[in-house]
Simulated assay, not measured.
Amino acid sequence: MSGKQPIFTPELVKVIKIFGLLSIGIVLFFSFFNDYRADNSGDAGQSHITDASRLYFKNMRRYYYDMEKQDEAKLDIFRYSKRLKEENLPFINLSIIISRIKDKAFIYLEPSTPLQKESEIQIRWKNLENDTGGILSFIPGDRHSHFDFVAELAPLIEDEIVFEVKIDGHWQSILDTEKERYAFKVTAEDYFRLIE
C-alpha cells in the first residue's frame, strides 16, 4: 500500500461544491434584496446628510422648529415655529424633511392658500440700490424643483430687494415683512448647513 492518497477525496469535493454553491447563493440573495444602493444620480449633494450634520441639527436647531412625524414614511418634517400662518396672505414657508432610515434631507415650499391656486408661482424681484431685477418661476413638482427654486431665491433675500408674486394676473407684495423673510432665510440656511 505504497500508493499516494488523493488530496481531494470524493467526500471533500462534494462538501466544497455544497459550500461553494451555498456561498454564491447567499451573495446573490443579498444583492437582490439589499435596500442600500449606490446613488449614481449625481444629486447626492442635494440631499445627502452626514451623521455630524444630523446631530447638529437635532441637538442645536430643531428647537426652533415645529416637528411633524410621519411614521408610515419614516420622515420627520420640520417647520420654523415663528413662520407666517395667516392663510389669506400670500407667502411661502419652507419645510425641511429628514428621512429617519436614509441619510437624506429635502426642502419643500409650502405656499399659502392664495398661491396654491397658481399652477406656476412667479416671483418678481428688484434691487432698489442698483436697479437690477428678474423673475423666478416655480412649477410644483419633484424635490429637485423645490431645491432649485430655494437655491435661487434664498440668496436674494436682503433688505434692499423687494419681491412681488403674481396672483390671478396681478402682482402683489411677498416677502415684505421681517418675520416672513427671516423664517424663509433661516430655514434655507439650516437646510443648506444640513446637507453640507
Rank of each mutant, 00 (worst) to 15 (best):
K117H: 02
E178L: 12
Q116E: 15
T113C: 07
F147W: 05
K74M: 09
S2L: 11
D142A: 09
E158K: 15
Y191L: 08
Q70K: 14
S173G: 03
L115R: 08
E11F: 08
L136K: 02
F106S: 12
I18G: 07
K117A: 08
W171F: 09
V15L: 13
H146C: 12
K126M: 07
F32P: 04
L194G: 01
D131Y: 09
G42A: 09
A73H: 03
P114V: 11
L109G: 07
I157C: 07
S119M: 04
E152F: 05
F30L: 13
D190K: 03
K85N: 10
S119K: 14
F91W: 10
V165E: 06
E196F: 10
F163P: 06
A188P: 03
M67Y: 00
Q172M: 13
R37N: 09
L115S: 04
A183Q: 02
Q5S: 14
M60C: 04
A38W: 11
I101V: 14
N93Q: 05
A154D: 06
V186W: 01
S81G: 04
E11W: 03
E86L: 14
G134I: 07
Y63D: 13
R143I: 12
E178W: 01
L109H: 07
D51Q: 14
D168K: 10
H144D: 13
F78L: 03
T187P: 06
S137H: 03
F91C: 07
R124M: 10
F29R: 05
D71T: 14
Q5L: 13
Y191Q: 00
K14E: 11
S41K: 09
S99R: 06
I49Y: 00
R100G: 02
V162P: 07
L75R: 01
Y182L: 13
M60Y: 13
F147P: 12
L84R: 03
D51I: 12
W125N: 11
I157Y: 05
E158H: 12
L136R: 01
S81E: 04
R37G: 05
T177N: 04
A105I: 13
S81R: 15
I26S: 06
E180P: 00
S81D: 03
N34T: 15
L94E: 05
T9F: 02
L194H: 01
R100A: 01
E129P: 00
E86Q: 12
L175Y: 06
G133Y: 09
F147T: 07
L94S: 01
Y108L: 13
F30P: 01
D159T: 12
L153E: 01
N130I: 15
N88Y: 09
G141E: 06
I167E: 02
Y182K: 10
M1H: 06
Y80S: 08
D148H: 08
R143A: 14
L12Y: 09
E11Y: 06
M1S: 13
F33E: 05
